[in-house]
Design a protein around this nucleic acid. Structure first.
Length: 567
RNA sequence: GCAUCUAUAGCUCAGUAGGAUAGAGCGCUCCCCUCCUAAGGGAGAGGUCACAGGUUCGAUUCCUGUUAGGUGCACCA
């Protein structure tokens, strides 16, 4: 497709010697009657020592309109460009018709990117705190991949620590009382809570637990076997959730896998002279880097830390995946931790390529009206419960609005889950979210179901058309009205939107875009009847509908949202 | 206390890496289904962009400070 911005920028550059980066300054005017693109002349005023209006007028004199730019005018200090609407429409429609993977790019070809996300804890419920990491990570996975990157999803499972010594102890004592095959996580959690209580009462039991963990690390047969069992059962249950939410993972190597590799990190740092003894522990002092909390690498009892394990993971992943970028999707509670880890990583002797590629993609928390959720206080909201409730509500709505619909269950699932995923991806990552059943399960306004609904409407139109006429038969002059152009312009921007998403690791940019596109189409739809007698008008409107249909589906799928054909 | 993030309509949020008259959704008041799905569309009301300075042709956007709130700060992950 023609890059109109670049085209205009080049035209302007030809006329001004001193101009640089014209492309950067070109913007889209706030109003349609101000043209399609604008060049503000203010910053040139200083260089050329002339008033902006004069510069704009002079430029206008020298620039010729052509087939692509139909009009140039001056408003204030702005030079406004009007592009040929017909050509714009033709470019967009032909591209989308010929390209099954509209918006796909090869920008990331040859680049490896790893995304560390979701990382639930074994034997603990998958609650809504894990939802955001999963949903954001998965959307980024899809979108990077759509830009030609070689993406790997890593699920760095929480499968390590004294907690497993406790689990083993609990199971040893009361395992026979629970049917953990049927509802593994629920039962394991019950055992976990019970053993925790016992530990509080009896210090000896806690020692037993610590001992179990030690045995686990040393490869004790019974402990390892149990641990594997917990892990397998949990994974099976997690997979159910990933099947619904769309998490894609190429590795399930958790903390237990990485932990033994932390020794090397300690050795390297020791050799570099980066380690300092402090209060019995080994630390890296980061004061000189502007971080006044030291990074603990080895505990005073000689065991590894969260940080040293993360550093070991960096080493391992650099070797295994040769990554250009490594994204960590966690809540902002871990900001300091990653700041420390990334700083210490520079001391490991790795190529700069790796240390420069480390990036913490942090996000805000889901809070209850009463404050933070806590597993210990039992006030978490289980993800499964939320998903089920959402599907249930979608089903109720279908029952009243479209009782004859086929596959009601399947559609309800897509709509219910779509609502939840979209809700989590629709706001800027950094924002906290106060959990509220009513707002998260709202299906009206700027929501997932709204996008799905718009898509479904395009579908029923396309279904009614037996055969699409050839693109060459389309009269693009029929797409120059405001409502059509609003849609065309949005679709033209799609690839650019995807680039913005990966530049900022911010999927909400795509979510907002899909809302805008749905809105533009809904307005168009309400203003125009699409299937009309006049063949030419019908065809142009059908093609516009097809374009929206495709982009909505591609976009939603990239976010991890499934589109129902009918709803 | 130190670090860090946030502050835009009653509520929830956008605001294109400094630009023209600050936009949506929810809620509220109206209007639109003999017509391709009304989970939709349209109109209206609603703003000191937290506050005070600074940078410049121009600041909701950048810088400094203040206020309010979230989060983190040595052997939990």
């Amino acid at each position: 497709m023609i890059d109109f911005k670049k085209y205009i920028a080049e035209k302007i550059s030809e006329n001004i010697e001193s101009a640089q980066n014209i492309n950067k300054y070109i913007e889209v005017p706030p109003n349609d009657d101000m043209g399609d693109y604008a060049f503000p002349c203010f910053q040139l005023a200083k260089v050329l020592k002339k008033a902006p209006q004069i510069i704009a007028n002079e430029l206008k004199e020298n620039l010729k309109t052509d087939n692509i730019i139909t009009k140039i005018d001056v408003q204030g200090g702005y030079l406004n460009f009007y592009i040929n609407k017909e050509i714009l429409a033709e470019e967009v429609i032909k591209e989308i018709y010929n390209n099954e993977k509209y918006g796909f790019s090869k920008k990331g070809e040859g680049k490896n990117i790893i995304i560390d996300y979701s990382h639930p804890n074994i034997a603990k419920p998958f609650h809504i705190g894990h939802l955001r990491s999963t949903v954001i990570g998965q959307a980024l996975y899809n979108i990077y991949e759509y830009q030609g990157y070689n993406v790997k999803g890593l699920n760095y499972l929480g499968d390590y620590g004294t907690q497993f010594g406790k689990m083993i102890e609990g199971y040893k004592r009361w395992g026979s009382e629970y049917d953990i095959e049927e509802k593994p996580i629920e039962k394991l959690t019950e055992i976990y809570v019970r053993i925790n209580n016992l530990c509080k009462e009896d210090e000896k039991v806690l020692d037993e637990c610590r001992n179990n963990f030690k045995k686990l690390e040393d490869g004790d047969e019974y402990c390892v076997e149990l641990w594997k069992k917990f892990r397998d059962l949990s994974l099976k249950e997690f997979q159910k959730i990933y099947d619904i939410l769309g998490g894609r993972f190429d590795s399930w190597e958790g903390e237990a896998f990485i932990a033994p590799k932390a020794r090397e990190v300690i050795e390297i740092l020791e050799k570099n002279g980066a380690l300092v003894k402090s209060e019995g522990a080994k630390i890296v002092d980061l004061e000189s880097k502007g971080i006044n909390t030291p990074c603990i690498i080895e505990k005073s009892n000689g065991s590894t830390t969260y940080a040293s394990r993360d550093l070991a993971a960096i080493l391992y992943r650099a070797r295994t995946y040769d990554f250009d970028k490594a994204l960590y999707i966690t809540s902002y509670e871990q900001n300091l931790h990653f700041k420390q880890v990334f700083e210490v990583a520079k001391l490991l002797g790795l190529d700069e390529k790796y240390t420069n590629g480390l990036e913490h993609v942090s996000f805000g928390m889901i809070l209850l009206p009463t404050g933070k959720m806590s597993t210990r206080e039992g006030n978490t909201i289980k993800l499964e419960e939320l998903l089920e409730e959402s599907i249930q509500r979608a089903e109720t709505i279908i029952e009243t609005k479209n009782p004859d619909l086929e596959n009601k269950k399947e559609v309800a699932k897509k709509v219910g889950i779509g609502a939840i995923i979209f809700n989590d991806l629709s706001n800027n990552r950094v924002k906290d979210e106060i959990f509220n059943w009513e707002s998260i399960l709202n299906f009206q306004g700027e929501t997932g179901p709204y996008i799905q609904y718009t898509y479904v409407r395009t579908n029923s139109i396309l279904e009614k058309i037996e055969q699409l006429p050839d693109v060459s038969k389309i009269d693009f002059s029929l797409m120059t009205d405001k409502y059509s152009q609003d849609i065309i312009k949005l679709i033209y921007n799609f690839e650019n939107i995807l680039e913005q998403v990966t530049d900022k690791n911010e999927p909400s940019i795509l979510s907002r875009y899909l809302i805008d596109l749905s809105k533009a189409y809904s307005t168009f739809y309400n203003e125009n009847k699409i299937i009309v007698d006049d063949e030419n008008i019908k065809n142009s409107r059908v093609y516009l509908t097809l374009a929206v249909n495709k982009v909505l589906k591609i976009g939603a799928n990239l976010l991890g949202i499934q589109m129902p054909d009918k709803m």
